[in-house]
Write a protein that binds this DNA or RNA. Structure first.
Lengths: 340, 340
DNA sequence: GAGCATTTTGCACGCGGGAGCAAAATTAAT
DNA sequence: ATTAATTTTGCTCCCGCGTGCAAAATGCTC
């Protein structure tokens, strides 16, 4: 046995080894590592010492296999160009971990790939799937839900009409009306709405709400432009195309953006390609309140999602055994800065 | 049995069920789902059909338990304020998944938490740990490595002197010299170096290299300023403090930043708080080439890391059974734009 | 078509630990 | 001290699949 020299790796120390070392049975060892277990403080101590000495940690694969609870959730994400994703991930991962959930991260390349991503997750027997991406059509969701390979499918920061999913999101309708009112109050009259990609399963109601509300309350029909992804660089290109050729009179006086990713791209191009000032020549609003929105460069008027509250609610939902309707909308907060 | 109405969830369909359905043995079913397996195309087809009908997918927990290979790697990350992290994650997750690796994402809160994060990973019996965070001191690494709970510990985008880790990174020394030469060639003579936090285990050699090289080759000693995290907002504050009170004559003529996160924060504050022009009043260089560095707003002169090549090399290392020194440095590319 | 090589299939056993119950030990009550 | 109530411990059986080998099936040669 030539490779016996270096002690392989210590993953193979099992509860049996610890049991022998501590002079108790294997089951007592395992109990020592479960929080609910009924165990005497004496043997708990013995086990702790023995485990420490041997470097034992319970194997969660085996525990999961036997108990049919993995304490694992899959986080499905795409759309890596959107800086808000980083914020969401930070918040979710921190809070999930605090509550004892491990995270399987799956990068969903595109719509066609979503099915594979879900399959991936189900093979690890995750307890729940959290979607913070957008590339899911209803067909994929239905397939996944029909197979029922996980207990919960949570759509985070998007609303969904699918009755079998749990949607935890900010109240877009309420938010967008607040933005519309604010925009109108500040005297803007020719808004243009900059929208992201339209998806069928994980919605945002921002564009629809803004356009309908503006039409109904302020009489005019806002222009709308759409970008194929929440990517500042892409948004910059689209906005340049849309505004470049215009005379100042035909320019919108404000660009209402579906989120900050778009707003940031728009800001850059308006300043540096069109040579216009913000907000004097054209104002801008965003949505999400990403970190850079607050920075000296953008000073973006935007709408903050209560991500921490949403994540806290998410872990509560994850922990719940009930089988009720967990959908919930949160109220955010309009952050008024200099851009509008 | 009241909860027998809705078909629970289908995770509990096992290879035995498929075997019965297909008229073969359980082992044949499992073989049908392994890539190496020796199986006749006839029974493969039978199994596929039966599995399809029943909605069976193999349980990777069990497979991993039995084979002692989890096909799981842990990705340890902190430092979520740095936009480059999003790029790294996108690249890594995409390429790892393409090669069949699943990813356990662990948000490492701080230095003290790193041990727990590693423990987390080891309980899932990951095959390898990838660090793309920085909050690791040598003590934690040594403990982890001593316990040898995983086969490989890879430090991505950082160099490490620890002989038991695998470091895959850009060649900072080479890169920084190139930057120093470029800066000097362009006529800058009073550089200030803006550094990030200093850590003991996962290094960057940028500051040391730049300062030493500049001193040796160009005679003067560059000022240096340090920021506690790679966070644009933090960097902005530090730069403001460092430069605010100065007269134009005592200002550095270029700010050489350890990475783009710092450069971006610095750019914002220099333009909008100090009211200076870039590069006319003060130039800036970064490192990493994050997406926004290319955008119209920053046009940042920076150094691109070959992330794709690095990630491809990483999966090659992961797949290798050899036990040799896998450390490797990559050459990047100076991206000259408008900021310097 | 017999005889042999080669592929395919089935099987006992093991991976590490959980659920639930019965035996043992401890504590409380009389 | 004795019995009953309670806690702790050990144990059997199982979770779902891989390993390595033996049995069965198939292919090949002459």
């Amino acid at each position: 046995m030539p490779d016996e020299k270096k002690p392989a790796f210590a993953g193979n120390i099992t509860a049996d080894d610890v049991a022998a070392e501590a002079g108790v049975s294997r089951w007592t060892v395992n109990r020592a590592f479960r929080k609910d277990a009924s165990i005497s403080s004496k043997s708990l101590e013995k086990v702790r010492i023995a485990a420490e000495r041997l470097g034992y940690v319970p194997d969660l694969r085996a525990a999961s296999l036997a108990s049919d609870r993995s304490n694992l959730v899959a986080l499905l994400i795409d759309d890596f160009a959107n800086p808000h994703k980083l914020v969401m991930m930070e918040r979710l991962t921190r809070i999930l971990r605090r509550e004892g959930w491990d995270i399987l991260l799956v990068n969903t390349l595109d719509r066609a790939d979503a099915g594979h991503a879900l399959l991936n997750a189900s093979q690890r027997r995750v307890d729940a799937v959290i979607l913070i991406g957008i590339q899911f059509d209803d067909e994929v969701l239905d397939t996944a839900l029909h197979a029922r390979r996980f207990r919960k499918l949570i759509i985070f920061a998007r609303t969904s009409r699918n009755p079998n999913t749990i949607s935890i999101a900010v109240d877009d309708v309420h938010a967008m009306r607040e933005i519309a009112n604010y925009v109108h109050e500040r005297g803007y009259r020719r808004p243009m709405f900059l929208a992201g990609p339209r998806t069928s399963s994980a919605h945002l109601l921002r564009k629809e709400t803004f356009v309908d509300y503006w039409r109904q309350h302020f009489g005019s029909e806002p222009e709308t432009v759409s970008v194929a992804a929440y990517d500042p660089a892409l948004a910059a290109g689209i906005v340049e195309d849309a505004l470049m050729a215009r005379t100042k009179a035909t320019l919108p006086d404000i660009l209402v953006c579906e989120n900050d990713a778009l707003a940031i791209g728009a800001t850059d191009v308006i300043r540096h390609k069109l040579g216009l000032r913000i907000p004097e020549d054209i104002a801008i609003t965003g949505f999400d309140d990403v970190p850079q929105a607050e920075g000296a460069n953008y000073r973006l008027t935007t709408y903050r999602q209560p991500l921490t509250d949403m994540a806290e609610y998410l872990v509560k939902v994850l922990g719940s055994e009930e089988d009720r309707d967990f959908d919930r909308l949160f109220a955010g907060k309009l952050m008024v800065r200099d851009s509008a």
